[in-house]
Structure formats: C-alpha cells, structure tokens
Design a protein around this nucleic acid. Sequence first.
DNA 1: GAAAGAGATGAACAGTGGTTCACTTCTTGC
DNA 2: GCAAGAAGTGAACCACTGTTCATCTCTTTC
Lengths: 201, 201
Amino acid sequence: MAYRRTPRVQARLDAQRVAILQAAAALLAEQGYAGCSMAAVAARAGVASGTVYNHFTGKVELVAEVFRSIVSHEVDVVRQAAATGDAAECTVAVLETFARRALKSPRRAYVLLVEPVDPLIDELRLEFRRAFRDVITDAITRGVANGELPPQNAALVAAALVGALGEALIGPLATGAEDPDTIPTLIQFTLRAIGSSHADA
Amino acid sequence: MAYRRTPRVQARLDAQRVAILQAAAALLAEQGYAGCSMAAVAARAGVASGTVYNHFTGKVELVAEVFRSIVSHEVDVVRQAAATGDAAECTVAVLETFARRALKSPRRAYVLLVEPVDPLIDELRLEFRRAFRDVITDAITRGVANGELPPQNAALVAAALVGALGEALIGPLATGAEDPDTIPTLIQFTLRAIGSSHADA
DNA sequence: GAAAGAGATGAACAGTGGTTCACTTCTTGC
DNA sequence: GCAAGAAGTGAACCACTGTTCATCTCTTTC
C-alpha cells in the first residue's frame, strides 16, 4: 500500500511552499495586503487556491510567515550595521541602513511599517518597529552612560527617530528618493536630536 | 400639487444630515473606518440605511466630509497656536497642541494620521499632515532666515518632526499618555533637532 | 499494471458590507 | 380631505474574498 513521503515529493512540496511564500511576498511588496488575495497568490505561485491551504491554515498565517521572514532579515541587517562605533555612529548607521532599504522598495517599507491589517500581523509589525527602536535605544543609552550624549529618555527619543525616518522616507509627506539631500539632512537631524556634538560636522 | 421644500422640512433635513455626520465621526473616533459601517452610522443617527444615501452619494463621500470637517478644525487650532513667537516657540506650540489633542483621543488621531482606507480619503489625510508640516516649515524657515536657527532643509525636517510626534504619541511604539515625561522630552527633542539654542534650557 | 492513498484542483459556499429600489409614510397645496 | 410627490424605510441585491470539500490526478508499492 502506498505511500510514504519520498524525498522527491518532499522537495516538490518544499519548492511549492517557497513559491507560495515568494508570490505572497511579491504581491505584498507590489500591492499591499489588499492585492495579496489568496487567489492572486495561488495564481502567481502556479497552484490552485486550495493548494495554499495544504501549506498554511489561512491567509493570516501565510502573511504572518512572510512578515516574520522579512522582518527577521531586516532586523539582522540593521543590528549588524549598529555593531561597532560610538553612539552617534551606531545611530547614523541604523538610520542609513534603514533609509537605503526603505527607499529601495517604498511600497514594501510601507506595508512593513504602516499598513494595518490584522491584529496578529500588527503584532509582528510592532516587533519590527520595536526592534529598530531598541537598537537605537541601546546606542543612545550607551552614549548617555559614557557622557557622549546628554541625559534623555532614550526609548522615547528612539521611537521618535523611527517615526521621523518613516515619515520623511516613506510617509505620505515623503517626496521620494529624488532628493539626494534627504539622507544627509536626516543624519544631521538625528545627530542634533540626540544632542551629539558631531552634529555640527 | 405638493410640494415645495418648506423651511421646517429643510431644518429637519439639515438636522438629519448633521446627526449622520456626528454619528459617523463618533464611530470613526471609536472604532476606526471598519467600525464605521453605513448600517452602524444609520442606526446611531436614528435613520434607515437608505436615508443616508439621500444626503451622501456613498460611504466615501460621507467619510470624506467628516474628515474635511475635523481636519479643517484641527489645522485652524494648530495655525492659531503658531501665530506668535520666534521659530522655536512656534514649533513647540505646534508640537504641544498636536500632542495634547492627539493624546486626548488617540483612536481618532490614529484614524486621521495613519489608517489607510481609500485613495480619496488618503488624499485628505495627506492634506492634514501637510498642513502641520507646512506650519512647522514656515516657522523653521523664518528661524533660519533671521539667524535663530542653523541652515537646514526646513520641509524635510518638518516632515520628520511630524513623523516623530506621530510615532511617539500614537504610533505602535507609543506607551500612551501615562508617562508625564513624554511631552517635555519631545519638546527637547524637537528643539535639539532644529538646532535651537533654547534646547539646553 | 492495479490498488491505495497523498496531493491538487477549482467550483461552490459563506460572511461581510456597501448600495439599490419598490414600497410605505408623511407633508403640502388646493 | 384628497391628490401629488417628497422623504424614509429596510429587505434584497451584489461584489468581493477567504475557505471548504467532493472530485480528480499522480505517485508509490506490490
């Protein structure tokens, strides 16, 4: 009697799962949550809509997995950027990394940072923002401790910086990547805001 | 043969229209766009769902009118707050006004500032944010012109400040109104960010 | 190659919520 | 009071999507 799952079959299933995740990620990045309908995901992945349910219990779980994957990668990149240097350097590194990646695919950044959708996914978005904030909070806290920066509420200042970057880069007020002055301006803004003496440079 | 619209009837219709707008505004502030269903609006206004369509062509037009009314009022309030003083004072005044009002009804602030919904309404939200940004931009520009502030890209800095406030006050990272330190911290943040010499106060 | 069962399919289903419209109720002018 | 027509009603309609499941196809085993 058949059938034990054979490596070949397993590979096909894995590939299918990956295809579905990629399709969902692409649709999210291009059209946001609304454009990421199960029918569209299935079509893009080259499977029937029912097949998606062999891999995920439903839309929320699928999108959550896409989120998790993107978020963990982005957070890694930012953490690495903030690995060395003094407080000001770390903060600027986070900022630049964040900014460059956001400008590269604004729609995706928007989906990750802003577009609200579902409580579970909002929770993941919160993690995402919090991760950035925490990296900055750490840098500021260190800077305050060693006298590089004046005393301040590091977490609140970090949150404000995340908001400032989001707004200036991908918010409705963003003029887009056109202006080459954007990133330098934001760096100066950030250095001033945290009270760094490097701000005048 | 009847019937010319009599003043009494006109008054009833006007009152009905106002009731519908108030119901929609209340539902928006309490539950956001999703909770603001036409059925709920009609029920709260004490009319049948069909009646709403005697006043508005559809949900988008109804919500747009609610938005317009709130936005124009909020913008007036902020403009007035920024009417006098030097650049730093104006900026702080905008910030404080914005912050206090946002903290008073966070859900409403969220709907006004963030929740995306429909292209037409997003356009109104953009106006809203832009209005705040422009008030701040003006203040900074004046400050730069008269030497009170160092040279900077006023519009971009203003956008970043709007984002910073939004995030720190009503964004997913906001801890809420609990912390009495929030507003002073944000004031200092803002003064530093624009390079004001008042920042050390 | 045939039986058995896993995987794939997509039409049908169900919940939701904006919108319509045939019908009822009320107001006005004669 | 009665005809005419405006205003109000709310059940039905429709479009949209996530989800299900009866059916089909393919793989594996013997």
